[in-house]
Write a protein that binds this DNA or RNA. Structure first.
Length: 879
DNA sequence: TTATGCACGC
DNA sequence: GACGTACGTGCATAAT
């Protein structure tokens, strides 16, 4: 029987896997992406190659015998990221559970081990397969030794036979080292001959065969320049050849008989996979499938009581409560039931039994009875709808989970529990199904699931609070997010009054104008088409009308506004299309979109603020999004005329922070010039222009101010030089110069930016004023884009996030003051740096005092906070 | 149902 | 010099 030896280049594959896969970590927070990639590759090799002998070779240490030849060997290499180096012990553990040999020798590289063993295997008439990501190994290729290189990712591999290699590279396997001697290799810091690339090297080798032969026949080398280069770097070339040559006689002590392989112990491997969190790989192991299914079903039994008549002694005052709802929209949604768990028992209370019970209501409304819930705001609003004003919400699993890591995008009870290594419940998807198949299960299944969720909250609460303490985020949680949930809940429940007549009126007008435009566009295009389809529009503009193509998307021509803007003068149709787009957006999103969500009875809109979503700590708003109602263009701004007070003689009142992000920046960066500018109440964009362009205040042109404003915008939102160049319509180089001039003008800001990136690289996260965290796993990425993105995020998040913290605190303070001082005024909306309220006309003056006091004094920074006010009979008029 | 392009706000 | 560029939500289209 033929024997087959598979040799795996462990370092190479792990590196490949690490950079190819996103930086996953398992529930214990250990990074496993490289090990995961390695494992998928390994499983595939085992299935496809069925080796009789198997060994994984690793590099030993920092120095190798090659460093004696050339101390700079592999110089200039980035240090291995800690997220990767911590995975080496894991992969060795993995190999041990698979009972696969691994091996390394001091002073030698994995290549040399592989070279040596493949040589002895050949002598024993074995077939050899080498797996690596390193092209150097190709020198080993011959009729008995095939080398498979990873192409993209780790499981996608390409097998090199001598023929394939020749076809692909234009040289024979034994010329691979000569090739490298000529070309060099920047990743190993092998010099080669400067100016000789792949093309020249192949040409020379085809002509002369080997490096030696080139130098023996120098007369025949064509080209004076090339000859010169070869002569000047002869020593380098021969040294490079020596460095690139794999040592096939390394002092390998392991014998082929030591590396025989006849499979792995399934149970052991399965155990490790579970430990590592490789759930998707379980089915690829023999016996894995049955095991996991069994496991999935094997939730521990849970005894619970279905309550028909709520009694007060079932509550202890420290109860976990889970409210299950059918729809996501909890203002209109149906309550499916309540799960209650405390240290006395587990209960399911059917909706009717709870809502008709005074005992339940009394318990809910008693602030001294502590409730541990998931999504306090949802619970608040849903129960308010049923006439219950729940109090004493002392723990919210959703908010806590969001604070611990906002990057996690599954903040539901089962997912959070899984992450905390608590598995005694199913995923909602398993119970309710998904998509069109979604439905409420039979009542026993439902009630058990609801109780299990309450149970998970009850059991994990202390652990989660502990984690918050560990990260010094307890105040952020108890003093900011938790009380804010109540404030936001009241805002959502109260809603915003909408004048639907006004919306309909505007809709009529828009419809007429759109119809006219549509006809005109068809006329000019010479045919009817769907103007709303970027694909069809692209064909008309760039093929039929032959307008110049300025930008392409991955699917075709770009028809984005900035492109159309550039074509505005090229064809009569362009301004019409731009206007059609603008009006079409108003019609579909704002007129029709808003009308769809107005409550018929109240004529109010109840948006929902998502308090656990954004990576920076800002809120978001959905169904509808009331944080992006048009304001920039007059036409769109009129939509705001439809947002009106809910009582007669009331007004819409708005207070917005002026330049809050730049003020926060001045504070955290401690930049003296920026701080002075704000203390002196200077126009910050003019001030920036003065410093960046080095002119006096009187010489700042409106164009300079506009550019300075864009730079400030860039600083606040963390855009790149490319982003700035786009927004100003200048080259990237010019944009870069602007940014540099800015940093020169505000050295404190520059210093902050450098330090925060350094801090992020060290800690792996950045923080806001109130200790909100954002983890940046890609801050040390080798990929330029990913790294740059993480760096900009590091600079930007503390600014945006701190501003978010501040306005959140202001909202809590304001809600308290409005109540204390018995205002009738109500908070309606928050739009990142502004608060929208409605109030009786006669409260306006007093209200302005109070809102000013709260917003300006809610935190003390090294610069003053400034707030602007406006009010009017509609939101439009509050300007 | 899902992905893509586009546009609105801060 | 690569590469694709803040954070969100929602609409329409087109492919699945």
């Amino acid at each position: 029987m033929s024997q087959k030896l598979v040799l795996i280049d462990g370092n190479s594959i792990l590196y490949r896997a690490f950079f190819a896969l996103p930086l996953l970590n398992n529930e214990k927070g250990v990074y496993t992406n490289a090990v995961y990639g390695f494992t998928t590759m390994l499983l595939r090799i085992l299935e496809e190659e069925k080796p009789t002998h198997l060994l994984v070779a690793f590099d030993a240490g920092k120095t190798t015998f090659r460093h004696k030849t050339y101390t700079e060997y592999k110089g200039g290499r980035q240090k291995t990221p800690s997220e990767l180096s911590e995975q080496f012990p894991l992969v060795k553990e993995l190999l041990e559970s698979f009972e696969i040999s691994h091996y390394e020798i001091d002073q030698f590289e994995a290549d040399d081990i592989i070279g040596t063993l493949s040589k002895s295997a050949k002598q024993d008439d074995m077939e050899v397969k080498v797996i690596s990501g390193d092209r150097d190994l190709l020198q080993l290729v011959d009729k008995d030794v095939n080398v498979s290189l990873t192409k993209k990712g780790v499981t996608n591999i390409e097998n090199y036979t001598p023929d394939f290699l020749e076809e692909k590279m234009g040289i024979r396997p034994d010329q691979v080292v000569d090739m490298k001697a000529l070309m060099g290799d920047s990743s190993d810091n092998i010099p080669g001959i400067p100016g000789v690339g792949e093309k020249t090297a192949v040409k020379l080798l085809n002509q002369f065969g080997t490096l030696e032969s080139i130098y023996e026949n120098m007369d025949e080398v064509s080209g004076k320049k090339l000859k010169e280069k070869l002569e000047n770097h002869k020593d380098d070339a021969f040294m490079s050849k020596e460095l690139a040559t794999i040592n096939r006689d390394s002092p390998v002590t392991v014998k082929l008989t030591d590396v025989t392989y006849d499979g792995y112990p399934s149970q052991k491997v399965l155990g490790l996979f579970k430990e590592l969190g490789f759930h998707s790989l379980l089915t690829r192991i023999d016996g894995g499938e049955a095991e996991t299914e069994e496991q999935a079903d094997a939730l521990e039994d849970i005894d619970f009581t279905v309550i028909e008549d709520v009694k007060s002694d079932m509550f202890t005052g420290e109860d976990a409560l889970f409210v299950e709802m059918l729809e996501e929209h909890y203002y209109y949604g149906t309550i499916l039931g309540f799960g209650v768990v405390n240290n006395q028992g587990h209960y399911f209370i059917p909706t009717v039994a709870a809502l008709e019970s005074d005992v339940f209501k009394n318990w809910a409304e008693n602030k001294d009875k502590k409730k541990f819930v998931f999504d306090a705001k949802r619970v608040t609003v849903a129960l308010k709808r049923k006439g219950i004003d729940i109090k004493g919400l002392s723990f919210d699993m959703l908010l806590a989970s969001y604070i611990i890591n906002p990057a996690e995008n599954h903040h539901d009870v089962p997912s959070i529990s899984q992450r905390m290594n608590y598995h005694n419940l199913s995923y909602d998807e398993e119970v309710f199904g998904k998509g069109a198949k979604q439905k409420v299960p039979e009542s026993e299944v439902l009630s058990e699931h609801v109780v299990r969720k309450a149970n998970a909250i009850f059991h994990l609460k202390d652990q989660i609070v502990e984690k918050l303490k560990e990260n010094d985020q307890q105040r952020l949680y108890t003093e900011l997010e938790l009380p804010l949930a109540t404030v936001l809940g009241e805002m959502e429940y109260y809603g915003v009054k909408v004048d639907t007549n006004r919306l309909n009126e505007m809709g009529e007008e828009l419809k007429e104008r759109l119809d006219t435009l549509e006809q005109e566009i068809y006329e000019l295009a010479g045919e009817r088409f769907n103007i709303n389809s970027p694909k069809q529009l692209g064909v008309i503009l760039f093929e039929k009308l032959e307008l110049p193509v300025i930008k392409k998307t991955k699917t075709g021509y770009s028809t984005a506004a900035d492109v159309l803007e550039q074509l505005k003068d090229k064809h009569e149709i362009m301004p019409k299309i731009l206007l059609y787009r603008q009006l079409g957006k108003l019609q579909s999103t704002y007129i029709e979109g808003l009308l769809k969500v107005v409550d018929e009875d109240e004529q109010k809109i109840h948006t929902r603020f998502n308090q656990a979503l954004t990576q920076t700590g800002r809120l978001s708003s959905t169904e509808p999004n009331l944080q992006n109602i048009p304001i920039r263009l007059e036409e769109g701004r009129k939509i705001r005329q439809a947002f009106v007070p809910s009582n007669e003689n009331w007004v819409i009142f708005a207070g917005d922070y002026s330049q809050i992000e730049l003020r926060v920046l001045a504070h955290i960066a401690g930049d003296e010039k920026l701080i002075d500018a704000f203390r002196n109440n200077q126009d910050i964009h003019t001030k920036t222009a003065m410093d960046v362009f080095n002119v006096s205040e009187d010489d700042v042109t409106s164009n300079m101010r506009r550019q300075a404003k864009a730079v400030n915008f860039g600083i606040v939102y963390g855009i790149s030089d490319y982003g700035l160049s786009q927004s100003l319509g200048i080259t990237r180089k010019e944009a870069k110069a602007f940014i540099e001039a800015y940093f020169e003008s505000f050295p404190g800001v520059k210093k902050y930016m450098d330090e925060i990136v350094k801090e992020a690289k060290q800690n792996g996260y950045v923080q806001t004023l109130m200790n909100r965290r954002r983890y940046l796993p890609e801050i040390n990425s080798r990929n330029f884009n990913r790294r740059s993105f993480a760096e900009r995020t590091a600079m930007n998040t503390p600014i945006q996030g701190s501003a978010a913290d501040i306005i959140k605190k202001a909202m809590i303070d304001l809600a308290a003051r409005l109540e204390e001082e018995k205002f009738e005024a109500k908070l309606l909306l928050q739009v990142h740096d502004e608060l929208i309220l409605e109030a009786p006309e006669n409260e306006v003056e007093q209200l302005q005092q109070t809102v000013l006091d709260v917003m300006v004094n809610t935190v003390q920074l090294d610069v003053p906070l400034k707030v602007d006010f406006a009010h009017g009979t509609t939101w439009f008029d509050a300007k």
